[in-house]
Design a protein around this nucleic acid. Sequence first.
DNA 1: GGTGCCCTGTGG
DNA 2: CCACAGGGCACC
Length: 274
Amino acid sequence: MPELPEVETIIRVIGPQIQGLSITEVVISHPSVIAHPSPEDFRRRLVGRQMEGVVRRGKFICFPLAGGARMILHLRMTGGLLVTPSDFPPEKHTHVIFRLTNGMEMRFSDMRRFGRFWLVEPGEADQYSGIAKLGPEPFDENFTAAYLQKNLGKRRKAIKECLLDQSIVAGIGNIYSDEILFRAKINPSRLANCLTTAEWEHLAEVIPSCLLFYIEKNAIGPEEYLKTRGRDYRNTPFLKVYGHKGEKCPVCGSLLCKTVIGGRSSVYCPVCQK
DNA sequence: GGTGCCCTGTGG
DNA sequence: CCACAGGGCACC
């Protein structure tokens, strides 16, 4: 489910709700979602710790803790986070509950249970979560056309697969890679080593602007977020190609095609995207 | 590089 | 019933 824009939306809602609060209790009903350390160590080490806030890195959610430790969460496909009163009806597939000093709870639910938590101690290198392998944020000043061309310009690999490579640029998933390539008018199957300098420049501009557009479309208040269980803030009404196979291209009216690239379904306009 | 796998739910 | 789903990793 969540790619960069959705994760950004989640942290903007959750941040003010948990900032400065301490964890009084951790209830883990499905230990497999705790990747590191052991679920019992995870629970024990978190109790009494204060959360300084929450930040996003790629699709990861990071909770810096007072004293220098950090809790890290990746929602993968179907993970969700909700801050609720303790008597709020629980979501199905709730696997971890953090009880907080103000009586509220932060709850992690995940139907498919692909999501994972990590806890990294102060001064410890994070060799567990995968954050260390991430490329730059799309909004980073180092994320430029020159960077893209230098790192991808010789790859004999579909550009769509390249955009999904988190070590090149952090945060793009299957939905937004299609949306980005549609806006950039580049066919998702094109090999990276065949893109022109002008196309790299276009991509370097479109990637951040497209993601920012969806972050803004996603904006939601905490009441609405809770009411919709953190599920209905998504961008689906604004997506131009993803989920629209067989419909008319919003630019030229041709029928949108679907294909598989790198094992992921991909929708594109055969006329607009060369 | 391609494939299978981790899971549950939904839609054809 | 089977195919597929917004992610990422291990494995030939």
